[in-house]
Amino acid sequence: MDFKEYKAKVFAERPEVKEEYDALAPQYEIIRAEIESRRAIGMTQKELAERMGTAQANISRFESGSYNPSLAFLQKMADSLGKTLKISLE
């Protein structure tokens, strides 16, 4: 059984897990976007942290999902990656 099959099985058997997974989707979407952007330009966590004026540990915690960043942190991150931060309520 691959991960996709396992996830579908768990979601079918435990709707509360799917609900929590869906609730965390925006957080993991921004993490994924940051990691992809950083890697696409060949930047390390340490280099990003230096550009942002923060500690590498903060970048690591952000990427692991254990750090709830402020809007200012996300804006600095986007600027340091040469990206534009867009937030929407849908």
Rank of each mutant, 00 (worst) to 15 (best):
R39M: 14
N68S: 11
S37T: 08
P69D: 05
I87D: 03
Y67N: 04
K18N: 08
V10L: 13
G65C: 06
Q56A: 12
E19A: 14
F3L: 12
S80T: 02
G53V: 08
F3P: 00
Q56T: 04
S88Q: 15
E34L: 10
K76P: 05
S70F: 05
N58L: 02
G53L: 14
F73L: 03
I87Y: 08
E20G: 01
E50W: 04
E20A: 15
M1D: 11
A33M: 13
D2W: 02
E19K: 15
L81I: 03
M1P: 08
P69Y: 05
A23M: 10
N68C: 01
L71E: 10
E34F: 10
A23K: 14
E34I: 09
S88K: 13
A55T: 07
E29S: 09
N58H: 10
L89C: 01
P15W: 09
Q27F: 10
I87M: 14
L89H: 05
E5S: 13
L71A: 14
G53P: 08
Y6I: 05
I87K: 09
L74D: 02
K86E: 13
A40L: 09
S80N: 06
G82P: 06
S66H: 11
L89D: 00
L81M: 06
K18E: 15
E29R: 10
E90H: 07
I87N: 02
P26A: 03
L85N: 05
L89A: 09
L85H: 07
